[in-house]
Design a protein around this nucleic acid. Structure first.
Length: 193
DNA sequence: CCCTGATTCGC
DNA sequence: GCGAATCAGG
């Protein structure tokens, strides 16, 4: 595989979105995460750690200030007659008059219980809410053995994805979701019969 | 152990 | 330019 314009473009896009190199590699196909990282660096992307780029072991340790031969402005006249105007935004998908909360039980394996009126650590719930913002929003096919398979949103709409954050080894969920998925069965009052 | 990006260097 | 190997860390 070679770095065609389209592939590079996708690389830039995904990298910009904060996707990991390995995920980008998987998306592109035919390349490893190393290839992606290498390309990222060659393209001049990477962290803008304006500060310092500390080397590994104290090997090199020289070159105080790298000379920047970039004395010219970035010419951006590229009219790029290719392609039409970028697609607008197929956004307005959800927003149907969905009554409060749907209690859909999709056929298939029993999905983990969505946080509801259950008795779960408020702290754990808060953590879940927080990490959901950072979720990779993976589709079903993008899940791997080591990505969090916690479903988010409503499976009946487009507003649905899987957490996708790195799952703990052996576990199906990431750290936060493991917290709410596996309860240390505490709030179960001794129910004598 | 799983993962992350960063760097090196032969090709 | 490319990317596997390696490194350094979480």
């Amino acid at each position: 595989m070679s770095w065609t314009d389209e592939r590079v473009e996708l690389l830039k896009k995904m990298w910009g979105e904060g996707q990991s190199a390995s995920q980008i590699a998987k998306e592109l196909g035919g390349v490893t995460r190393n290839a992606v990282i290498g390309k990222v660096h060659r393209l001049g992307l990477s962290n803008r750690t304006g500060g310092a780029a500390p080397q590994a072991t104290g090997k090199p340790a020289e070159a105080t200030a790298a000379p920047q031969p970039k004395a010219k402005e970035a010419p951006k006249p590229a009219p790029k007659p290719v392609r039409e105007a970028p697609a607008p935004r197929p956004e307005p998908v959800v927003s149907s008059p969905i009554p409060a909360r749907k209690q859909i039980i999709p056929a298939g394996q029993p999905l983990p219980p969505q946080p509801s009126a259950n008795e779960i650590d408020p702290a754990a719930l808060a953590k879940v809410s927080e990490i959901e913002k950072k979720s990779k929003k993976l589709s079903l096919m993008e899940l791997t053995e080591r990505t969090c398979k916690w479903p988010v949103g409503d499976p009946a709409t487009e507003d649905f994805w899987f957490c996708g954050l790195p799952a703990q080894a052996g576990k199906p969920y990431c750290e936060a979701h493991v917290g709410v998925a596996f309860q240390p069965m505490s709030s179960r009052r001794d129910r004598r019969r």
